[in-house]
Amino acid sequence: MGVLVYIESEENKYKKTAYEALSYGKALADKMGVKVSGLVFNCSDTDSLKKYGADKIITIDNSDFEKFSSKKYSHALAEVIKSENSSVVILSSSADSKFLGAHLSGITDSSYVSNVVGIPESISPFVVKRTCFTNKAFSSTEMIDGLRIISVSSNSFGMIESFNDSTVESFSPEKVNSNQRTIKIEKETGSITIADADIVVSAGRGLKGPENWEMIESLADTLGAATACSKPVSDMGWRPHSEHVGQTGKPVSSNLYIAIGISGAIQHLAGINSSKVKVVINSDPEAPFFKAADYGVVGDAFEVIPELIEKLKDRK
């Protein structure tokens, strides 16, 4: 019995969501009265994990795992689950973790629930709360006995420090043969991704054309935010698809979401609703977004945004 957390790293660094997953795993282990272990692939930093309460850190250092592969990683995880006799596996909600979770539940024949918010309401029966209908509702979902896999929704639990002088152990999984190989990874450098961002600045058709995004990027820069857009904006090619947020685009669960020139259609709101604080800037006081937002400015984006940037810079 025990909780196992998959701790995602990139270039020898952990993501915030990995610390959040570990914090969640620690809280769950406490509730269940069991221990929590963290599994790390090719990352030398074990000290920072002690801060978030891991009893044991299991490291796999092997060039075979240099690049993420859902097949190799899920088979390795399955082996660790067996050797640790884990009963619950915790993952974050990053693109890779959700990819891995589904694959892992297939090979281990276990129950899996994603988009989980909060510690299980009860352990026996095991009931977790998750979002569904693209954030329009929550479900209390029961998971049957046996191995259980949980993906924690980003920013839903937070990072909670609780020091533990973890033991560190290395693990060597069996080699998994796979004819699947990564050829190339293309990454934009320097920009913050929507999934990792605390603040997201998003703009819609109200911006009139792609040439007007300079002020959106400048506002995002000032705030250290990621940029996003509404669906028609990406459909028209004003912005890349990767910025499309909403029910059919990326979900956003940032601390702050600023919507500029976005009307607030139900499909848009569905995807961004789990953001904690929402600000809308729109010239139309009747725009539906005002019903979903915490703060609003009725005004012309072309006047409000440059002034807002100015004022934010003045304060720094």
Binding site: S70, S74, K98, F99, G101, A102, H103, L104, S105, G106, I107, T108, D109, Y112, V113, S114, N115, T131, C132, F133, T134, Q247, T248, P251
Partner: peptide, 15 residues
């Protein structure tokens, strides 16, 4: 877009 689980494709592949 109803349950947003993203589970079925991975499960099938795993199985």
């Amino acid at each position: 877009i109803d349950y947003n689980g993203g589970l079925v494709p991975g499960l099938i592949a795993g199985l």
